[in-house]
Design a protein around this nucleic acid. Structure first.
Lengths: 202, 202
DNA sequence: AATATTTCTTGAACGATGTTCAAGATTGCT
DNA sequence: AGCAATCTTGAACATCGTTCAAGAAATATT
């Protein structure tokens, strides 16, 4: 019994890694159960012994991506010892860089939601909220008069604004923006947002 | 000959309207050629006489949506005669309201891009760039020292930031944000961005 | 007006794809 | 070794977008 379960877990891990590789190279739409089955060496039907459906598979890959994103943002905060304002700029730039370097996996994070209506499992929701904590602390230092709830909302807004710039900036359909220019733009607008918020609070 | 072409055009218009209705009620994923054919009264294969493929259909619906969005933003600018700063706030709020009121159609605008790699036809690209002109003018008044290219980039960044707030704000997966709170947040952050940009320029 | 030619429309068929399931193979327990 | 529980298989199903040969309709020609 232990042997079988071990093998199962091993294959499950293989499956998720294969799915991750496949999304990274061919995009979310390029993820096919039959190709996955061939890659990990099993029948296509066997995929459903390892995972309930592709939705779960995508969410598991997404969870890994969020983890790596979290690490990237943590590293950006850790480097040097800048002011709260520059910390927030670094986080934004790090988010942009991560998205550019993991374009397809990062996109999959947001593309997938639209397709299914069913609620997300808890293990998937938790990760997402963790991201805001990187923003929360520097923001609290800059806006000492705001209470925790206000800070949470503002942190989310700040994140969303940067996300929008990255999302539309990395889109090739509109005018293609070279990555260095995008980074500069993001840094500039983040500084503007922070300056504006601090000025409003004064 | 003219009679047949007329009928064709009529049916083409019907098809696009049906597609629009279908996306609005069932989402982009709910758009099915067989259902469309039944609605406009023709065989499913006949859809491909009116339109090259579903991609084109989605783009045509998107074009209509962008037109209505443009009108909504124009109306927001027209109302009253506020300062450039408040004009930009109104545009942002109008964008948020439009997205909320036309949720599925608005989402389809951005969901669709990911799926196809082929370049967009010109008639579809043009509309998108027009949106920035609403932002450009008030921004030029606020930042008189910036040249046209810089203003264009900043206008796009501002739009992207607001788009991000709306996109993640209207997402139900994360913490659900009530619409009035979202509008308030957007107004607040737009004012902060503008204040910050103006202060930087000084 | 009758016929020929071009064009359009049809709906069956194709190829993909996610998912299911009964039958066969494998594993774990006594 | 033998039995029961479990897992694996790959064929089958349903649902898509899309294509296409054949029949219907419209247009052009005589």
């Amino acid at each position: 019994m232990t042997k079988a379960l071990e093998r199962r877990e091993k294959q499950r891990a293989d499956l998720i890694l294969s799915a991750e590789r496949m999304i990274a190279t061919r995009g979310l739409a390029g993820l096919k159960t039959r190709d996955l089955a061939r890659e990990i060496g099993c029948a296509n039907g066997a995929v459903y012994n390892l995972v309930a459906d592709v939705d779960e598979l995508v969410l598991r890959v997404g969870s890994r991506t969020l983890l790596r994103l979290d690490e990237a943002l943590s590293a950006a905060v850790r480097a040097g010892n800048p002011s709260p304002k520059e910390t927030l700029v670094r986080i934004a730039i790090a988010y942009c860089d991560f998205a550019a370097e993991n374009l397809q996996l990062w996109r999959a994070l947001f593309e997938h939601r639209m397709e299914t209506e069913k609620a997300l499992p808890d293990w998937s929701v938790d990760d997402q909220l963790q991201l805001f904590r990187h923003i929360y602390q520097p923001l609290a230092a800059l806006l000492p008069k705001r209470d925790a709830e206000e800070l949470g909302i503002t942190a989310r807004s700040l994140f969303s604004a940067v996300h929008g710039m990255v999302a539309l900036g990395l889109e090739q359909r509109l005018v293609a923006v070279p990555l260095p220019a995008l980074r500069k733009e993001i840094a500039s607008l983040v500084r503007a947002m922070i300056d504006g918020l601090v000025a409003q609070a004064a």
